[in-house]
Design a protein around this nucleic acid. Structure first.
Lengths: 188, 188
DNA sequence: AAGAAAATTTGATTTAAATCAAATTCTTAT
DNA sequence: ATAAGAATTTGATTTAAATCAAATTTTCTT
């Protein structure tokens, strides 16, 4: 339990014991089975998750296909999919691909913690910077890389993904089809 | 001059007069001519810009091609391209596509302002949230939209882009070639 | 205003990936 | 262990977009 905070503050920045205390009051540690859906489309009250154990994928529906948007593994955040700046409804689902243990935090509580503790807001800001960096990499990959190149970088970044995530979901994440990905990765 | 802060705080959130005062001490308002390069590849000391007037594009080199990464118009930020979390060198150039007026802020000063003023860090955090939202939209567009669809959304978002940005740069931003974009947009 | 340079369009062809379909392999539950 | 279902691969074909090349239009410069 304490080492959740340790993990996070080691990766981003240290914060005060008071902030950690208030934070610990607000989180829930929950376990869900494989295939559990964390968010339902059309919901406002999106929560913020951190994965202790397991894998999650975020997806949305486009022309009756599920488009995979994001993967999160151990020690990753699942960013809130709702745009709170606009107050827009979420059109995302978050599905667990394994039995998982998660840290759950309400968006409201997150905002309160940010308001009360400057250092907490700082920490949160750093996680957003990291997300921006990752998203920029992702854009670069989709913009001018071949399917093969995109797949190779993904494997490099998440070596376990091959065995933990269905190929169709990986294909979708990479902006291609399962058939194409199956063929491309067969070529060495 | 005051209305720069007004513009920004109206869009994101109000901040204290003290924060605004310190902020105003640190910024420079500068004018550059069209074609001016704001960042040179390999530089660490990336700055943070806000556009009062003009257009900028960020690009990087990939196999001797310039890949356009980001556009910024009036009242937009140009996010720092350096990943300060990693301390990585920037491999980005930022080029002005028109004679422009910009607000310039050092990355160091930005960090100091964040540290000194909680409300400033909050404001900054909100700008990052917005950037994440935009990047997610951009990923979605590259992932499963046709060139035509991507072009149409871009025009909708930035109606003036057609006349202010060369077609080749728009094509690159959309992850396609100039020839393809020229053809696709000709079809109504 | 004329010429040069840059940007855009058009043409012909090739290529990477999508689509539709079916077969095979791998998992899971009984 | 076996059947049922899910996931993955393989096959044939089509399609969107890339590439290479040249022509045309627009924009700058003197």
């Amino acid at each position: 339990m304490e080492n959740i905070f340790k993990k996070i503050t080691e990766e981003y920045c240290e914060i005060s014991p008071e902030a950690i205390f208030d934070w610990s009051e607000k989180i829930n540690i929950i376990e869900y089975k494989k295939k559990h859906l964390l968010t339902k489309e059309g919901s406002y009250s999106s929560k913020f998750y951190y994965i202790i154990k397991g894998v999650a994928r975020a997806y949305y529906l486009l022309d009756d296909k599920k488009v995979t948007d994001w993967f999160a593994f151990e020690n990753d955040f699942i960013p809130s999919t709702t745009n709170h700046l606009i107050g827009q409804k979420s059109n995302h689902y978050i599905e667990l691909l394994e039995d998982s243990i998660l840290v759950e935090l309400n968006h409201n509580d997150l905002e309160k913690l940010c308001k009360k503790h400057h250092d907490f807001e700082h920490l949160y800001r750093l996680t957003l910077s990291k997300a921006i960096y990752q998203l920029r990499e992702r854009v670069a990959s989709l913009q001018f890389r071949t399917v093969k190149q995109r797949y190779n970088s993904l494997i490099k970044l998440h070596p376990t993904i091959e065995s933990r995530v269905p190929l169709g979901d990986i294909a979708s994440f990479l902006g291609t089809t399962q058939e194409t990905l199956s063929r491309t990765r067969a070529l060495k």
